[in-house]
Design a protein around this nucleic acid. Sequence first.
DNA 1: TTAGGCTATCCGCTAC
DNA 2: GTAGCGGATAGCCTAA
Lengths: 90, 90, 90, 90
Amino acid sequence: MSDVLTRPQEGETVGGIAADRLRSIIERVERLEEERKAIAGDIKEIFSEAKGAGFDVRTIKAILKLRRLEPAQVEEAETLLDIYKRALGM
Amino acid sequence: MSDVLTRPQEGETVGGIAADRLRSIIERVERLEEERKAIAGDIKEIFSEAKGAGFDVRTIKAILKLRRLEPAQVEEAETLLDIYKRALGM
Amino acid sequence: MSDVLTRPQEGETVGGIAADRLRSIIERVERLEEERKAIAGDIKEIFSEAKGAGFDVRTIKAILKLRRLEPAQVEEAETLLDIYKRALGM
Amino acid sequence: MSDVLTRPQEGETVGGIAADRLRSIIERVERLEEERKAIAGDIKEIFSEAKGAGFDVRTIKAILKLRRLEPAQVEEAETLLDIYKRALGM
DNA sequence: TTAGGCTATCCGCTAC
DNA sequence: GTAGCGGATAGCCTAA
């Protein structure tokens, strides 16, 4: 099969689809997903290092979560928890 | 095909495997997994009901987690969190 | 302690919370979680029995997974069909 | 504030914690999480562009999923082969 | 409603 | 032989 015939320079279309452009989109997304995966790996490494240095990873994650949340949200969550605990006599 | 021939009362073996027993094991596990799934559904229903009654489901889950943990563990986790927060000047 | 005083028939409220209902929710969930745990134990027992009978537990789990996946694959096929239909504008 | 006094070269400790190292860990993770978020944004942009060009985003995502699954299915086939080989005592 | 991230359980490994 | 450890997997929740 000759690509010269089936892939005109201006861009082939298959079933009305601009195939080159579709291909480009897919490949760019796949590339970014790889990067994302690599970053996830880096994060895991840091936690591993932290553990090796004697830190408690669970607590570090709790800290990260606190820093992500707005202080007001933290406050409200704690307040609500206290209310429920009180209601249960805890 | 006649099971009378292929499944002797004493238990067929296929490739040296006690097939009946294997079948039994698999079916029992599958049955239990269904039950487990049903229970998960029941729990979801309760949370749904709670939400409908105006409770904050997230907080309820926090309560459940606290009750699951030993009080000593809760204490220690909080202490550790405080130490880390202090170390970070939070 | 007199519940007559502290728990009115209409339901006590603590800090605006319907404490009895909250308690009920929590306890029901905890009960179900126990059941779920018990079932997990039953499953483990079966695997233990299987191992004792000379079966390879890893393989059995692989089989269970395959049987679980089969319905999903049927769906997957349907999804694929949908994709192609969409691509063809049907 | 004088870091000379509060942060000895060997590293300050707060409550027995190597605060600098903890800070470093937290900040590196936060940095990576930002990168991850940025990548997610890039992916969204591409989908947005695709949509603007007349592509069906849902279908593109389905294709990406299929391409992701393919390697997994290769592995799955090997697993299945192993199972059968085992069942045959090979 | 779906996809992605998070958590918790579970399994094998290793080291004691 | 056992118990902690690290990795893998499945289910849950949230956000788009």
